[in-house]
Design a binder for these strands. Structure first.
Lengths: 151, 151
DNA sequence: GTGATTGCAAATCTTTTGCACTAAA
DNA sequence: TTTAGTGCAAAAGATTTGCAATCAC
C-alpha cells in the first residue's frame, strides 16, 4: 500500500500538476479544458517559446501521436491568441505564424528559410514622436528585420 | 496649320511624354512595354504614391475601362516588385499589399479599416546594435504601427 | 518569325464554415 | 441534459500555373 501511494504521489507531481497548470490557464481564458486544448496548451504554453504555423503544429502533434484535426488547431490557435496566450506575427503573406512569447519583442525573419527568431531585448531601440490621431491608439509596434544571405 | 501644329505639340507634351517615361521605366527593368504593363505603370508609377492590392488594382483598372486579367495584374505586380519599382508590404496574412513608394519608410496600419499609410520621415527613429550573423545581411527593417480605436 | 506576354480556366494552398457527433459541466 | 467543442468535408479566398492565342521586336 505504501508503494502504491508513493507511485500515485509521484504521478501526481509529474503529471497531474502540469495538467493542473494548463487547466487553469485555459479556464482563466474561459476555455473548457478539452483533450485537444490541453494537448496544444501543454505543447505551446509550457516549455521554451517558439513560432508555429497551423500546419507545423498539426504535423508536430501528429508525429507525437496526438491527432487533432486541422480545423481544431486553427480554432485553438485563434482562441489562444484572443485570450492573450499567444501572439500572431505577420511576416509572410502566405501563412500565419503564432508566437508563444507574448512579451513585447521584435523579430528577425530569415527570408531564405522562412524562419522567425526573436530579437533579444535591448538590441533595438525605437524613438517615436507620438502623433496619435484623436480617438486612436497605437495598439502595437512591430519590427521585422529581414535577414538574407550576403551576396 | 499653325493651330494644328500647336495642338500636336500640346498632345505631345501631355500624352506622348508620359508614355515615353513609362516605356523607359519598363525597358530599364527589362520588361517589354506591353499595353497592360503601360497602363499599370502609368497608374502606379506616375502620380502620388499609394498602396494597392491585386484585387483593388484590378477593380480600379476595370472602372477606368482598362481590362486586364487578374493573372496579369499579379504577374505585373511581382515583376514590378522584382524590378524595384514597387515594394511589397506584409501587414495582413489575408492579402498582399504593394506600395508605390519605394523609399525607405514605415507604415501605420489602421486595423479597423485594413488601410495602410506611410509614416512620415523623422517620426520613428531606430537604433540598432547590429549583430549580423556572418554571411548574412539585414536586407530590410520594417516597422508596422498598428492603429486601433481607443476603447 | 520567334520568343515574350497575355488571358482564361483549372489547380493549389491556406483558412473558414456548416453541421452532425461527442464530451464537459 | 444542456451547451460548448470537435472533426470532417465542403466552401471560400487569394494566388499560381498550364497552355493556346496574341503581341512586341
Amino acid at each position: 500500500m505504501h508503494d502504491k501511494a508513493s507511485a500515485q504521489n509521484m504521478e501526481s507531481q509529474n503529471i497531474e500538476r502540469p495538467f493542473t497548470r494548463v487547466i487553469h490557464k485555459l479556464q482563466d481564458a474561459g476555455l473548457r479544458p478539452t483533450r485537444q486544448r490541453m494537448a496544444l496548451a501543454k505543447s505551446l504554453l509550457e516549455g521554451p517559446s517558439r513560432h508555429v504555423t497551423a500546419e507545423s503544429l498539426h504535423r508536430e502533434m501528429h508525429q507525437a501521436n496526438i491527432n487533432i484535426s486541422l480545423a481544431t488547431i486553427y480554432n485553438c490557435l485563434h482562441q489562444f491568441t484572443d485570450a492573450g496566450l499567444l501572439r500572431e506575427v505577420v511576416v509572410d503573406s502566405r501563412r500565419t505564424y503564432f508566437d508563444t512569447n507574448i512579451s513585447e519583442h521584435h523579430h528577425y525573419f530569415m527570408v531564405a528559410e522562412g524562419r522567425l527568431e526573436d530579437v533579444p531585448d535591448g538590441v533595438i531601440n525605437i524613438d517615436m514622436l507620438p502623433d496619435v490621431p484623436p480617438g486612436k491608439v497605437f495598439s502595437r509596434v512591430e519590427v521585422i528585420i529581414h535577414v538574407s544571405d550576403d551576396s
